Amino acid sequence: MRMIFRCDPRLAEHLPRPFPARTALPDWLRAMPAKAHSEIHDRDIRTVKQCPPFVDAMAYGVMIPLPCDIRVEHGAFAWDWDIPEPATQGHPRAPLSFHPVAQFAGAPFANGQAALKFNSFWTIELEPGWSLFATHPVNRDDLPFRLISGLVDADRFHDGGINFPAVWTQPDFAGVLPKGTPVAQCFAVPREAPELVFEAFDDAHREAYAKVVGEVLAAPNVYRKHFRAKRGRLVT
């Protein structure tokens, strides 16, 4: 699988590149202890830092970074970004634009407010039969916005930028959203629908279920040691 990112030639030296999500795990996860005391259990228990599915979801795919610092003051957004005039007609220069409230009429996440739009400065091309799923960076509720998920057939639509709408979730935020902040986490997903098959356990599956559950309850790290697949590194 190849993901091809292209940008305007005049901006190539000014844009941070999309990067593997595994390289952008947040500081709060790195600082989290491996174990913490549980009052309910009256002992130390493992935290989600030791949960491979939790961490692997955060580390999967590619992050789209914010191209410059954004200053935020009680709902007002400003930036100073000195870049050349793009060589491509119709290409954006501003890192942000907006969707009016009417575009999300009745949507529970909108809360009656306009949505941000993180403008795209990279086009993304995937191989035939694959689509691009873009969503909020996984488990990143620390970010002061919430991306609105979308699915784009990027094997066909790859000559224009994919913009990323988001709802600002911290109205009292005052500060800087720094350049390089992950604004979208993207995965290549096959477009062909799976065949859904439903079965009741037979004897072999019941025995296997009991065996696996027993092992998981008896010792830590069973999934990590015996079931977790080795993940290849993204090649750039």
Rank of each mutant, 00 (worst) to 15 (best):
E192Y: 00
F109M: 08
F187E: 06
D202E: 07
D203N: 12
A229M: 10
P182F: 04
G106L: 10
P137K: 03
A219C: 05
A193I: 00
D141Q: 00
E215L: 13
A184R: 03
K117R: 15
G150A: 04
T135A: 07
H158G: 14
I148M: 12
L177N: 01
I124Y: 05
L143I: 06
G232V: 04
L196Y: 01
R228V: 14
N139K: 03
L177R: 04
E192V: 01
N111I: 06
V197D: 01
V138I: 11
G106P: 02
A174S: 15
A229Q: 05
A115Y: 09
H158Q: 11
W130V: 03
A204P: 03
E195M: 00
P190I: 04
P171Y: 07
I148E: 02
P220M: 11
V183I: 15
E199Q: 10
V167W: 13
F201K: 03
R224F: 08
R224A: 14
D141Y: 00
G180P: 03
D159N: 06
N139W: 06
V152E: 09
L217I: 08
Q113D: 04
Q170F: 07
F187I: 04
P190Q: 01
R191H: 03
F121H: 06
N111M: 07
A193V: 00
D172Q: 05
P220V: 10
A188N: 15
V138Q: 11
T181M: 01
I162K: 01
L177K: 03
S149Q: 07
G160A: 12
P220E: 09
F109L: 14
R228F: 10
D172P: 02
P100Y: 05
L217M: 13
P194H: 00
P108R: 13
D142E: 02
P220R: 14
H158P: 04
G232T: 12
R140C: 07
A166M: 15
L151R: 05
L177M: 08
N139Q: 09
H136W: 12
R231S: 09
A184C: 14
L143Y: 00
P100T: 14
A210P: 07
A210V: 14
V213F: 15
T123V: 08
F104T: 08
A193M: 00
T135F: 08
S120D: 03
L147G: 06
A115S: 15
T135E: 03
S120I: 03
A102H: 09
R156V: 10
N163M: 15
T169M: 09
N119H: 12
P182H: 02
V101L: 12
F104H: 11
L217A: 10
V138H: 12
P220T: 12
Q103W: 07
